[in-house]
Amino acid sequence: MPRARPEENTAPRGAPGDFEEIQVANKLKIKVGPGVGADPGAVDTAERIVESMKADYEKRLESEIRDLLEAFDKMRYGGDFDLDLLYDKSHEIRGEAGTFGYQLISDIGKLLCELLSPLEQASAAEIEAIGAHLKAMQTVVAQRVKGTGPEVAQQIVQGLNAIVKKSSA
């Protein structure tokens, strides 16, 4: 399921003239009124909460990437690759990392998911590529590279990007 491919003709088609538009009462706006508009301090408050969770997250992220690398090494040793597991874990890491400011981890995780997504089996070159992505994530966390990182970090992403492009060509 997570690595599902597009289905054919997913957009439903209605017959010509077979169309009804329904205007729905905005019950939600009534419920959250009578005030109007955004609370200017709300986002700052939420961002402070996220910031306060960051130290714990960093420890957990390190441990999650370490576990993932260990699992990958075992797969490599045994020659039996659970690509769904690798995809699911990478996808989870990717989703959370960006929220905590690790955009580079998120970018690398996204590329790894794109690499894994179409694979039924991994070739030797693809196994090397998966390992490169995981090592890149581990290094970025160990060096605490936040945001999109320095120029060299951008080059790493560009390199991984090229691998993914080449693999899917």
Binding site: D18, E20, L28, E47
Partner: peptide
Amino acid sequence: KPITARTLYDRVLAIIEKPRPFVRTRSF
């Protein structure tokens, strides 16, 4: 994803402030 407080809040506000009409067709 990745979600931020800003993007989450923006989507909630869009739901409140910019509701869309619903559409019924034979298949949607």
